[in-house]
Write a protein that binds this DNA or RNA. Structure first.
Lengths: 203, 203
DNA sequence: TGTACATCAGTGAACGCGCGTTCACTGATGTAC
DNA sequence: TGTACATCAGTGAACGCGCGTTCACTGATGTAC
């Protein structure tokens, strides 16, 4: 179906959506400004008009991704009853976000972005602010067994690695069903949270 | 300097080397069969002759990488005095390998490989075998606080995430000097190892 | 020691392709008067 | 209510480029006799 009107309505958003669907279908390598334009039924000069360049388009996608990630992490932390539970919940939210939005996650860490874009930096920072404040509070309450900055690096590494390895298919067979997968994520994050909080239950 | 002889000597190895140097300099996106051939001073049909295709060439690089990784991990485990120390040492070796060989690490997890290549599968499997046997032994000795398969997933995730985030530059400023960097890697892996071994010293 | 021949390594030309970016342009919209 | 005009959205043609793969080929090597 062809477009009816000359003006699209919200072409930038549509171009981002098409980019995501290309990545989802065929991976980052399949993304080209021309293919994005083709799918949005628009001339291939239109994306350049809005985003300046291919990396500008990808950066816009990444910003959307980090904003969604930040929202997910914040919501998870908000609904937790303790610092320990909040740590685990943010970790689960991170991994779940990656699995639910593999195309966003892939772009966000693709290394093809304009990292000097202020909006990008802001979105990235926001994504990790909650973890840091949370661990700062836990430290103040003397609940942590290690320096909060160290814990934040380790926590982020753990969930990032789990997400990346999962998406690359390395854990095929370790938890294929939906329930199994969630159980694995819960178990890994619990193992870490318990190891890092003084009062953590050890089995 | 031009090549003197018609036969190269060991062109496959030279092509792999050139591929790695391209990735190191300009990233995966800069790799093309023609550029590799250009650097090796060889016709651009030569790489195809040896590796069949671009992904064949990249897969050959990845196999070299996993073999080097396996050697590093095995050496680290061999020189450890306890299961706990072996777990930490393999983790440190993994991250150190990634930092020392970013081009290999990038290719190994690039998602552009012929994963059905038997030699590839073998090299991957070998890279993680030591961690699994090590944790199996620790479990048999009742040293672990959790299922060894769970611990292996978590351990691998932790070091993979730390390596990936480090390479993407996310920890700029958290340990810039060489010593600081090594201290961070030691601290993160120690935190995990201590949390997972029953007898681990907790601070 | 010499020769024929099979084998493998590397060539070079050709194929068809899609790409990113630029630029002068036209179409549509909305606002000021 | 109507008109002029500025602004922004999107066009389409052209630029020059490098890419992966294929294929019939030639150059070099080594082995069998």
């Amino acid at each position: 179906m062809a477009r009816r009107t000359y003006h699209h309505g919200d072409l930038p958003a549509a171009l981002i959506d098409e980019t995501l669907s290309i990545v989802k279908q065929d991976g980052m390598g399949a993304v080209s400004i021309r293919e994005v334009a083709r799918r949005a039924q628009v001339s291939h000069a239109a994306p350049a008009h809005h985003f300046g360049s291919k990396s500008g388009l990808l950066t816009a996608c990444a910003i959307v991704g980090f904003q969604k990630l930040a929202e997910a992490v914040e919501a998870a932390a908000d609904s937790a009853a303790s610092h320990r539970d909040a740590l685990q919940a943010t970790g689960v939210a991170y991994v779940q976000f990656a699995i639910d939005n593999p195309e966003l996650f892939t772009i966000m860490f693709s290394g093809q972005l304009q990292t000097d874009d202020p909006a990008y930096g802001e979105a990235v920072t926001r994504s990790f602010r909650r973890l840091q404040t949370l661990l700062g509070e836990a430290e103040a309450a003397q609940e942590l067994s290690a320096d909060p900055r160290l814990v934040s690096v380790a926590a982020w590494s753990l969930v990032h690695g789990l997400a990346a390895l999962w998406l690359s298919g390395r854990f095929r067979g370790k938890g294929d069903g939906r329930g199994d997968r969630r159980a694995l994520i819960d178990a890994v994050t619990a193992l870490f949270a318990d190891g890092v909080f003084r009062s953590g239950a050890r089995s």
